[in-house]
Simulated scan of single mutants.
Amino acid sequence: MTEKNYLTIHSLTALPWHNLNRDDRGLPKQVREGGKTRGRLSAQSLKRAIRVAYELDSFTDATKSLRSRALPEEIVRRAGVIAVTNGVEFDEKSALKIATKIVKSLTANDKDAAESEGPAKEAASDTMTWLSADEMDALAGVLGSANGTGGTIKAADYIKRQTGSLSIAAFGRMFAAQSDLQTEAGIAVGPATTTHPIMIEVDYFTTVDDLGGGGAGHLGQAFYTSGVYYRSVTIDKKQLRDSWTGWTSPDAADRLELLVRSIVTALPSGKDNSTAPNTRPALILAETQSHRTAYEFHEPVKADFEGGYLKGSIDRLIEQATQARAFDPSEFGESFVSGTSVSADLTIGFEYSAASLPQLTKRIVEWLQR
């Protein structure tokens, strides 16, 4: 029997008036599916939201990571603190050259990295690099030591394929120039799309100039939509175990639980303060699988007689999950159901365990740690 190595979290979330993820025109992102225009939250925006939610609530700075073009400056800042603490003379300009070369060696070939030291070539690469706190601290420790500006410092001595950052292990990172150091993602995130067609609404607004004697000081327009979004996130237990080094740490279960909670609840933050569409998932179906399996809404859900797409979306998702088990019973293992719209009259044609959000996250973490 094929091992159930994957766990996919399917969710349906009804989002009121919002523009959480917009395109280059300021419109809510869209996709054409089943001949209809649907709302879309990109996978990239969802991964960013999950990572930020997880790291904002992380227990120590040591669990956090940074993805930036300015990592050399951050490493040098940390090195300067270490040097002052140790009473070591510190040459910030020289340290920045070394840090820049180290970071760029991950994303540019040796020739590009060497040439990028000159002031006129500082912008040789616009690539953002993602490092964990412990990796930055390790490099800073060398630069901030008595011999930190002498000799050759190799990135591979301090940055490994396996990482102590659960965020990096979850979503993976690529180093174009040193592929043997890049981290494979343990989690696959699909875009969230509405289960039905959407409309884009235009909001005409004005701002009042408090010192201008009344009247509008600015006129403008913004774009919004609403809908029921389906998304799926699949955790590859084997890959996550291979990418993350923190499995034996005392707070491993707490960190995993926080990540799972972020996966379930986090949303992109576009125009968040203007609309505050921070609703909780109406339905969550988490199921262990032999292979990555998601569900689809290619044929758009029709509105209920009195309006609304939520009930029809929930029924469609449960129906597909039931049909998938009938088609290939060996594909699925444990199933957990949660969400704000789960009630006693919800008919589910397969075995499952009902769970609150804390119970759901705990059970998923128990599965991960088996």
Rank of each mutant, 00 (worst) to 15 (best):
F205K: 06
K111N: 07
D209M: 01
G349D: 13
D23C: 09
G212M: 10
V189I: 12
S356W: 08
K271L: 04
T288S: 15
T207F: 01
G333W: 10
F223S: 01
T100Q: 09
T100M: 02
D23G: 08
Y229P: 06
M1Q: 02
P28L: 09
D209E: 13
L211Q: 11
S65R: 05
S343V: 15
H196V: 11
K93R: 13
R231C: 07
I200F: 03
L211K: 13
D209G: 03
V301R: 00
K121W: 00
A14V: 03
I284R: 06
I200P: 03
I153N: 11
A95N: 05
D272F: 04
S341H: 14
T193Y: 01
R280Y: 02
H18E: 14
G87Y: 00
G151R: 11
I314L: 02
S167K: 06
K93N: 14
S353D: 15
T193H: 07
S330M: 11
K121Q: 11
T322W: 09
G312H: 05
A155Y: 06
L219S: 04
K101I: 07
T234Q: 05
I314N: 08
P300T: 08
N21M: 09
I200E: 08
G151M: 09
T63I: 03
G339V: 10
G26S: 10
G217D: 06
G150Q: 14
S125D: 12
A124E: 10
P191K: 05
G214L: 05
T129R: 04
D91E: 14
S313A: 15
S179Q: 15
V260S: 10
V301M: 03
T245P: 01
D251G: 02
E201R: 12
A120Y: 06
I9F: 08
L166Q: 03
T85A: 15
L71Q: 10
L66K: 11
T63H: 14
T265H: 07
G212Q: 09
M1Y: 06
L15E: 04
K93Q: 15
I235V: 15
P277Y: 02
A99N: 00
T288E: 15
E306M: 08
L71A: 04
P250A: 14
A113D: 10
E287K: 03
S42G: 10
G144Y: 03
Y295M: 10
D157A: 09
S132L: 01
K121S: 12
M128G: 00
V365N: 10
R48P: 09
R231L: 05
D210H: 07
L283E: 09
E201S: 15
Y352L: 07
K237M: 08
V264R: 11
S105V: 07
W17F: 05
P197I: 11
S145E: 12
